[in-house]
Design a protein around this nucleic acid. Sequence first.
DNA 1: ATTATGTATTTTGTATACACGCGCAAAGTA
DNA 2: TACTTTGCGCGTGTATACAAAATACATAAT
Lengths: 217, 217
Amino acid sequence: MAASIAITNRSLHDQVVSRVRDLIIEGTLEPGSRIDEAHLIEELGVSRTPFREALRTLAAEGLVIVRPSKGSIVRKLTPEDVFSMLEVLGNLERLAGELACERASDQEIAALIDLHNSMMECYRTRERMPYYKMNQEFHSRLAELSKNETLQEMQANIQARLKRIRYIGNQEPDSWAGAVADHEEMVRALKNRDGKRLGDAMAGHLGKTWERVKDSI
Amino acid sequence: MAASIAITNRSLHDQVVSRVRDLIIEGTLEPGSRIDEAHLIEELGVSRTPFREALRTLAAEGLVIVRPSKGSIVRKLTPEDVFSMLEVLGNLERLAGELACERASDQEIAALIDLHNSMMECYRTRERMPYYKMNQEFHSRLAELSKNETLQEMQANIQARLKRIRYIGNQEPDSWAGAVADHEEMVRALKNRDGKRLGDAMAGHLGKTWERVKDSI
DNA sequence: ATTATGTATTTTGTATACACGCGCAAAGTA
DNA sequence: TACTTTGCGCGTGTATACAAAATACATAAT
């Protein structure tokens, strides 16, 4: 693969999309606040055209809301929004777990377990940030093992919408141990290719996430 | 309400989005074909700016693919795409069914059963088109009864992507009777608020849809 | 004849200019 | 004083102009 040589000729559109998405997730652009076009294009050094196209993309992703003739705002999630997302996400990940047990190769499962072990190492040494990132990746990778592209896409979308919330929720005192226990259970089920059990573990895990996160909305 | 007087001031963007979406669904814009910007904006009588923004929206919806510097094409669904969509949709509708049994009011259920009865009337008189439309509405309405907005949104999105395929699949000789039987089962389960049974019926129904549709891709 | 290379043409990407609608504020009226 | 009304400024929506890239084509070299 010549991927290392090929120069990345990403369009401004794409760059703006991921840049603004990050600004939203990390909270620089506050939920509910208006997006000042003039100011932000100045900041980013692009013109209105690619910027507005990027806003349309982000609107379709559910991160911003475009109010015709009234400007765009960063979508502010209500507790109901978050609850409904977790409900759907839990269901999607249950399906992902079941399918992964049927469809993943032994190597793929082994690779995921490696990742899990790295996560556990971070837990032992209390390295929050690496754990958080590996956790995101664990769930994405598991979705991949379902071999279902639509599932991956939907999961990624909801993950992106919730990213900011979960990031905040992650600062809280704890139930970290509980999350870790959930993951141990997932890995046990995955090792045995016990789809039902893995599915239940995934869904249960997301159910508890609501408890962990609901007060930080 | 002065809705009769008020002139609809929908932005061009919105109008273009729904117009082009329809062109894709009804097949005027063929899957896989390039979207000729110059030609289409002429046809629609709008300038490039709102048109291109609309393309971004449709790309995020999964109906078109924007290839940087190489133009946009109408997304062509592979059999794998359709299978994965139906797999996810089945799972979403299973959840919708379960939640609807818990959360819907008696009136809401009664209203849905009315719709079902109208559908059955169309089946008796073999009116395909009205049946098709009511069927779409039945599934959307059931998703509404789940009281989960994210679920509704995801379901609507997959429905939109599959609309063209299902429309074609619907022309086929038949298994119409089978679909009708599925719906009868759904309504029975809904009447009894038997979530598990309704969920299974929904998922099973979508599973059979694959059989009905797979040859027309 | 076939491939390579340079050029012309088309098409996309981005910037900018113009127009229109919304919201706010100042002035007017009850 | 409170409540409309009207005018103005600003931001959004749309059109167009310009720049850059890609494709198609023709010509030349092997």
